[in-house]
Simulated scan of single mutants.
Amino acid sequence: MVRSPLTIKSIRSVAPLLDRVLVQRLKPNTKTASGIFLPTSATSSPLPEATVVAVGPGAPNSKGDIVPLSVKAGDRVLLPGWGGNSIKVGDEEYHLFKDAEILAKITE
């Protein structure tokens, strides 16, 4: 059974809970530097890089203490090719991941 992504009217109405991170994947280039348009089959797989839009407050550990997340809004991160939940806002698509599923934070 294939489910369509959840549709929301405004991204501001989405507040991640616990250790969840709301991200927006970077869109693949559809045109090369020399101006050649790439077919959709060449750009259909999602890029592993994303921008963090919002984060939850953190999840409690076994002692009940809240463990803060390792990323914050505005960070660039690497994501796995699987997992996450899709959220559609207008024409834009966002994804919710657990903090532990994020592979790396990109620093420059």
Results as ranks from 00 to 15, higher is better:
residue 1 M to K: 05
residue 3 R to I: 15
residue 4 S to F: 12
residue 4 S to Q: 10
residue 4 S to W: 10
residue 5 P to D: 08
residue 5 P to Q: 04
residue 6 L to T: 11
residue 6 L to E: 13
residue 6 L to P: 01
residue 7 T to D: 05
residue 7 T to A: 12
residue 7 T to R: 15
residue 9 K to W: 07
residue 9 K to N: 05
residue 11 I to N: 09
residue 11 I to W: 06
residue 12 R to C: 08
residue 13 S to C: 06
residue 13 S to Q: 04
residue 14 V to S: 01
residue 15 A to P: 00
residue 15 A to D: 03
residue 16 P to Y: 13
residue 17 L to W: 06
residue 17 L to E: 14
residue 18 L to D: 13
residue 20 R to A: 10
residue 20 R to D: 15
residue 22 L to V: 05
residue 22 L to C: 00
residue 22 L to F: 00
residue 23 V to C: 12
residue 23 V to T: 14
residue 24 Q to L: 03
residue 27 K to Q: 11
residue 27 K to G: 02
residue 28 P to W: 04
residue 28 P to C: 11
residue 28 P to Q: 09
residue 29 N to C: 09
residue 31 K to C: 06
residue 31 K to V: 11
residue 31 K to A: 00
residue 32 T to D: 05
residue 33 A to S: 12
residue 33 A to Q: 04
residue 34 S to C: 06
residue 34 S to K: 08
residue 34 S to T: 11
residue 35 G to M: 04
residue 35 G to R: 00
residue 37 F to Q: 03
residue 38 L to I: 03
residue 39 P to V: 02
residue 41 S to A: 05
residue 42 A to M: 09
residue 43 T to N: 10
residue 43 T to M: 01
residue 44 S to R: 09
residue 45 S to W: 10
residue 45 S to A: 15
residue 45 S to V: 15
residue 47 L to G: 02
residue 47 L to K: 09
residue 49 E to S: 07
residue 49 E to I: 14
residue 50 A to W: 03
residue 52 V to S: 06
residue 52 V to I: 07
residue 53 V to W: 02
residue 54 A to C: 07
residue 54 A to G: 04
residue 55 V to Y: 02
residue 56 G to N: 09
residue 58 G to I: 05
residue 59 A to K: 14
residue 61 N to C: 04
residue 62 S to D: 14
residue 62 S to E: 14
residue 63 K to D: 10
residue 64 G to M: 08
residue 64 G to H: 03
residue 64 G to R: 06
residue 66 I to A: 02
residue 66 I to D: 05
residue 66 I to E: 14
residue 68 P to W: 09
residue 69 L to E: 12
residue 71 V to T: 11
residue 72 K to Y: 01
residue 72 K to C: 13
residue 74 G to D: 13
residue 74 G to M: 05
residue 76 R to K: 14
residue 76 R to W: 06
residue 77 V to M: 03
residue 78 L to H: 07
residue 78 L to Y: 09
residue 79 L to A: 03
residue 80 P to F: 03
residue 82 W to R: 15
residue 82 W to E: 08
residue 83 G to N: 10
residue 84 G to H: 04
residue 86 S to P: 08
residue 87 I to A: 00
residue 88 K to F: 04
residue 89 V to F: 03
residue 90 G to I: 05
residue 90 G to W: 10
residue 91 D to P: 00
residue 92 E to N: 14
residue 92 E to A: 15
residue 93 E to N: 01
residue 93 E to Y: 01
residue 94 Y to Q: 02
residue 96 L to C: 05
residue 96 L to R: 03
residue 96 L to P: 01
residue 97 F to Y: 15
residue 98 K to T: 12
residue 98 K to D: 12
residue 99 D to S: 08
residue 99 D to E: 04
residue 99 D to N: 15
residue 100 A to R: 06
residue 100 A to M: 09
residue 101 E to A: 15
residue 103 L to V: 12
residue 104 A to H: 12
residue 106 I to D: 11
residue 106 I to W: 00
residue 106 I to V: 15
residue 108 E to C: 02
residue 108 E to G: 04
residue 108 E to R: 10
residue 108 E to M: 08
residue 108 E to Q: 01
